[in-house]
Amino acid sequence: MSDSKTKISTHEGKENPSNSSEDVDLGFSMRMSENQPEHIPDMFPIRPDTKGPKSVGILLIFGAIFLFFQAYGDVSLHQAEDLSTAEVEMLLVTPNSQGDGSENVSIEQYQEFHDAARESGGYALRGYGLGVASIMLFVGGILLFLLKGSGAKLALSGAFTGMASGIGGSLLVKGAADTHLVGVLLLTYEITAYFCGVCMFMCAGVAALPLINARARLALYPEQKVVFKTDAEE
């Protein structure tokens, strides 16, 4: 576009009325460019958060190791046809000492419970299910530490797998306990079912954090950008 000179008219008042209508040229011009930006850049851009997903990955790795030992214990119980007398006595010392003696569990009763729990498939379901879940959480945690978006999805799937198998297996074991056990041990196996569900639910929540948080998600998926638009821009 052509340059346009800005002129300002000055009025000196009553002393010089003859110059009141004259324009004064200040000697500078203003150029208006046609390539003015229509959209002002965002002053507060969302930056990727790499520390969050890595921290979540480390937590998932430790959680997977804990689940693996729990799964190993359940698989060992499923494969053990008979428990030794020393093992059963060690398990029954604390529960039997907390009652008045009228509801003590004998070694034969606990062995019957163990056989019923094995036949119901509770140990197998919980053990193998938590084993698979621990592997998925472990691999997902490593991928998250490497800022791979698939790690969060894999860990989340593992958490739901562990939740389903853990609660289902615990309920089967609790059913066997209701039939063959009495006293404090009944409450113990009931609490175990709830505890397993709560732990896996928390694990699923932790695994989902990188997918929910905008900055963490941007670190996992750099090609996805979050843009805020006003009503006038839509």
Rank of each mutant, 00 (worst) to 15 (best):
S150P: 05
I135F: 14
L185S: 10
K148P: 09
G183A: 13
I167T: 07
S157D: 00
H114W: 12
A124E: 13
L172A: 08
A117Y: 10
V132G: 02
L143K: 13
G162I: 03
M136P: 00
G169A: 15
S134F: 07
R126Y: 06
T179V: 14
E190T: 09
E108H: 07
S120N: 15
T179D: 12
F113L: 07
V173F: 06
L186N: 14
G166L: 07
V184H: 13
A124W: 15
V139H: 04
G149P: 02
E112I: 12
G151N: 10
T179A: 08
D115G: 11
A176C: 09
M163K: 01
C196I: 04
S157E: 00
V139A: 10
A155R: 11
H180F: 11
G129H: 13
D178H: 11
L146I: 09
K148L: 12
L154S: 01
S120L: 11
H180A: 14
L187G: 14
S165R: 08
V173D: 07
K174Y: 15
E190K: 10
Y194V: 06
T192V: 01
V105M: 10
S150C: 06
G183Q: 13
G158W: 00
V132I: 13
A155G: 14
G129T: 14
G140M: 08
K153D: 05
K148A: 12
L130F: 06
D178R: 12
G121R: 06
M136D: 00
Q111E: 15
T192P: 00
L143C: 10
R118G: 10
I135R: 00
T161N: 03
K148Q: 15
L125S: 03
A164G: 02
A176P: 12
A124C: 01
M163F: 14
G127A: 10
I107R: 12
A133C: 03
V105F: 09
L171Q: 14
M163R: 04
S134K: 06
S150Q: 15
I142H: 02
G149H: 07
R126G: 11
G121F: 12
K148H: 14
A133W: 02
Y189V: 03
G149N: 10
A117L: 09
Q109I: 04
A133M: 03
Y128C: 00
G127P: 02
S165W: 05
A152Q: 13
A193N: 06
A133P: 04
Q109F: 00
G140C: 04
F138Q: 04
G166N: 04
A155M: 08
V132R: 01
S106F: 04
E119F: 05
Y123C: 02
G122C: 07
S170K: 10
G140E: 04
G158D: 00
G140T: 06
E112G: 12
G158S: 02
F113P: 09
L185G: 03
L125C: 02
T192S: 11
S157I: 10
G129A: 10
F195V: 01
A164S: 03
G131S: 03
G168L: 07
M136Y: 02
